[in-house]
Design a protein around this nucleic acid. Structure first.
Lengths: 182, 182
DNA sequence: AAGATCATGTAAATCGTTACATGATTGT
DNA sequence: ACAATCATGTAACGATTTACATGATCTT
């Protein structure tokens, strides 16, 4: 029942940035910012929030505005802040990566070469779409410089460079496979 | 008890490449080939193998050589082959990515800028180490060209380009943060 | 009044990792 | 004989996703 994974820290961190938020808003914010390297679902957010409250890392501050909608709004406690900071200064653990596309390519000998080329063309399209999304966001972020957008830009740049590298790789892999085909 | 995730296909695929293998050897082979984009542990391999056998996708072919060690050696059945091929021709699903380093960077405003720079320097070292490992493997693979090494090389190249992009990104991020510090 | 979206949660299933447990065989 | 490594498995736990369930409020 007690969640003790990384989700905790993702939520703690978002709460640290937003100062004050409901589970619902937390999710919305992550969707428009961290979604390409970190996602949470409602089914993890609400239980984690409950758990963090039990641990006294966050507290409920019932919606302060007049228009009272039944929202549970939370803030970090000082204990929560220090737990978050402690986690932040630890070096990041590299997480297990499972890349299904790579797995399928690795098994490429077992299917006609055209299938593999198709997979790559398909991926190329998706990478291109991603890239333009990222570049759009980057453009928007660049217009309102702040210390927070600084870090958003840095993480976003990582996404952009990764995708660009993937695109180049797609092209060279397609080229290689086409030359083998002949 | 019945495993139905991607592990199944990873194991099926490896068995397809190796033609015949024990759980132990499967693991060893993955360690020296797919480990940087796909790993399995014994605790997933053995139950999956059992499950695949129940599904008649693989069959046991007791160690055929004289020196009989108690090994369970499996091969794909024709049903297994077609299930594998069916999976191979489907486009790869993009899997959820969780990058803890990005998450910490994203929350960068909440810690002293030097901490973040430290994280990046640390990562740079790890990326460099990875890169040289990959390049070594690439060198070895290039010496024995075969249709299997072709696909190994393609996936490996992806790893190399990803890491190179990450390295470049580290440098530019460090540079940005240092210039902000002043 | 209807549909979208706000808002929160539970239950079950899925999936994977860590730790535990055991014993045979090979090389030195 | 001892260590390494070959070889297979189970149990418990940890963590996340999917499906389910409900109802209020806002917009048109």
């Amino acid at each position: 029942m007690a969640k003790s994974g990384k989700s905790q820290f993702a939520i703690l961190g978002m709460l640290g940035l937003l100062k004050k938020s409901s589970g619902y808003d937390l999710k919305k914010h992550m969707e428009s910012s961290t979604q390409y390297f970190w996602k949470e679902t409602f089914s993890s957010i609400y239980p984690v929030l409950e758990d963090l409250e039990k641990q006294k890392l966050i507290v409920k501050v019932e919606s302060p505005t007049k228009n009272d909608r039944k929202r549970n709004v939370y803030t970090l406690t000082s204990k929560g802040k220090s737990v978050l900071e402690h986690w932040l200064i630890q070096p990041a653990e590299s997480m297990q990566i499972r890349n299904e596309l790579m797995l399928k390519l690795f098994f490429g000998t077992m299917v006609p070469i055209n299938i593999t080329i198709e997979h790559l063309e398909q991926q190329k399209k998706e990478f291109k779409k991603k890239l333009s999304t990222y570049q759009e966001i980057k453009h928007e972020l660049s217009e309102i410089p702040s210390s927070e957008s600084l870090y958003s830009l840095i993480t976003l740049d990582h996404g952009i460079k990764q995708v660009m590298a993937s695109l180049e790789w797609c092209d060279s892999a397609i080229k290689t496979l086409k030359s083998v085909k002949k």
